[in-house]
């Protein structure tokens, strides 16, 4: 089954058509993705949910330009996506911070590599917002999980991405920290209005942050259903009866996939 997701908002950033991806392992060929169509654009937020191994993270890596699809077409702003575009930033599940670099060096690394001007006054504003401005000289291993995630977010956001990709960003955090970071992500999105695609196992997280929720499943992984959730990221949405209604809807879809 092939499910298309077409978002009406413009401008269109990424269009993937018929994306497939397999990995060869010692156990043989693993087909991770099977003919996925996806369109992302227009300061929208998307949450990808589904059981483990359904290809969510693989899809995110394709969208980031870090892996190439075996077949299908992947366009970024109507041109084939050959390598990671400057306008896309990625936050990985294990934060992706480099333990040999201080928080300061981690944050400015992307800008340095791209030979962009480093405006620390602007960065400090963001770090104050993220409540990590006093951690600049620390190393990642001296930070808590929540602080590491904030640094990873800061490193991605200083690049001013038009599309932010998050791979299970809050999975390793305790409930309180997770909720704080969800709230912070909402706030940052409202301020900056980038497109955001988030992979998560957490239903509440998906409903809170994903204006479109893509339920993935099957082997190889495909998008099995699309749930519209326009109120996501709006203030006061979290915890409302409508929010929980959406959560049950997503749960029902996930149970049918499982």
């Amino acid at each position: 089954m092939k499910t298309s997701l077409i978002q009406n908002s413009s401008p269109e950033l990424i269009r993937g058509t018929g994306l497939t991806k397999s990995y060869s392992t010692e156990q043989g060929l693993i087909r991770a993705l099977g003919r996925v169509d996806i369109v992302i654009g227009g300061a929208q937020t998307i949450a990808l949910v589904g059981p483990s191994g359904c290809g969510k993270s693989t899809l995110l890596l394709l969208l980031a330009g870090l892996e190439k699809p075996d077949s299908g077409k992947l366009l970024f702003k109507s041109t084939p996506l050959a390598q990671p575009p400057r306008e896309i930033a990625l936050v990985l599940q294990d934060y992706g911070l480099f333990p040999w670099k201080s928080v300061r060096s981690n944050i400015e690394l992307g800008l340095k590599i791209r030979r962009e001007t480093i405006d620390w006054s602007e960065i400090m504003e963001l770090l104050n917002e993220l409540d990590i401005s006093d951690k600049l000289d620390a190393y990642p291993q001296q930070l808590s999980g929540g602080q590491k995630q904030r640094v990873a977010l800061a490193r991605a956001l200083v690049l001013n991405p038009t599309l932010l990709l998050l791979d299970e960003p809050f999975a390793a955090l305790d409930t309180l920290n997770r909720e704080r970071l969800q709230e912070l992500s909402e706030k940052l999105w409202r301020q900056r209005r980038f497109s955001m695609a988030l992979v998560t196992h957490n239903i509440q997280e998906a409903v809170r942050l994903g204006q479109t929720i893509l339920v993935m499943g099957g082997t190889p992984g495909r998008i099995l259903s699309v749930i519209e959730n326009h109120e996501a990221c709006a203030p006061e949405y979290f915890g409302t009866p409508y929010f929980y209604e959406k959560c049950s809807q997503v749960r029902t879809q996930l149970e049918s996939v499982a």
Binding site: L61, A64, L66, Q83, P84, R86, I88, A89, L90, L92, Q93, D94, G96, L97, F98, K101, L109, G110, I113, R114, R155, L159
Partner: peptide
């Protein structure tokens, strides 16, 4: 692989991978 992805997602090339990772 995560460290390599992380560097590449920041725009790093092979030389950056060598120097920074």
């Amino acid at each position: 692989k995560a460290a390599k992805y992380s560097l590449k997602s920041l725009g790093g090339n092979r030389w950056d991978l060598f120097v920074h990772v």
